[in-house]
Design a protein around this nucleic acid. Structure first.
Length: 150
DNA sequence: GCCAACGTTGGC
DNA sequence: GCCAACGTTGGC
């Protein structure tokens, strides 16, 4: 089993939104590295939910992969803001996974606190200028982060 | 295949 | 709202 972290802007889609709808297709990813990580995800993999572009940014909970990578149909939809003419049903370029709500932390674990952890110095999230929205988390890192929650 | 210009991400 | 860092695009 593997561990991951996925970012979302809470104004667009927050952990509370996920809690309400229970499961959600993670559509709109238009970055090759992030896409490739989604293709590696397996059912039951655990994923940190990260709130980005807000104050304060940080990890707010845990979700679980409930459906493995399948074509992101919003890339075929001319009306969607995620439309990509280079992605076709015959040869889809973009994929998504479906995630299921597991847990919302009592308190957000701030990015600032994550940055202080020596054990997390290799995590892409805390490295300067990193904009990757989906990234792998090592088992050791996963455990270290869970110890930070209240 | 290089690289400048441009658009986006996301912390602050 | 600013802007640094990064990815992508397109001219050559």
């Amino acid at each position: 089993m593997a561990y991951w972290l996925m970012k979302s802007e809470p104004d667009t889609f927050s952990i509370d939104d996920l809690k309400k709808v229970k499961t959600e297709p993670w559509d709109g990813v238009r970055n090759y590295q992030a896409r490739n990580f989604m293709k590696e995800m397996k059912k039951k993999d655990l994923v940190f939910f990260y709130h980005s572009n807000c104050s304060p940014p940080g990890i707010v909970g845990v979700m679980e992969v409930s459906k493995e990578a399948y074509p992101d149909h919003t890339s075929f939809d001319k009306k969607s803001k995620y439309y990509d003419p280079k992605s076709t049903k015959e040869n889809p370029r973009w994929f998504m996974v479906e995630v299921k709500f597991k847990e919302k932390f009592k308190e957000l674990i701030p990015l600032e606190v994550l940055k202080e952890q020596k054990s997390l110095k290799d995590l892409a999230l805390v490295r300067k200028g990193n904009r990757l929205s989906i990234m792998p988390v090592a088992e050791k890192e996963w455990k270290a982060i869970l110890e930070l929650k209240l």
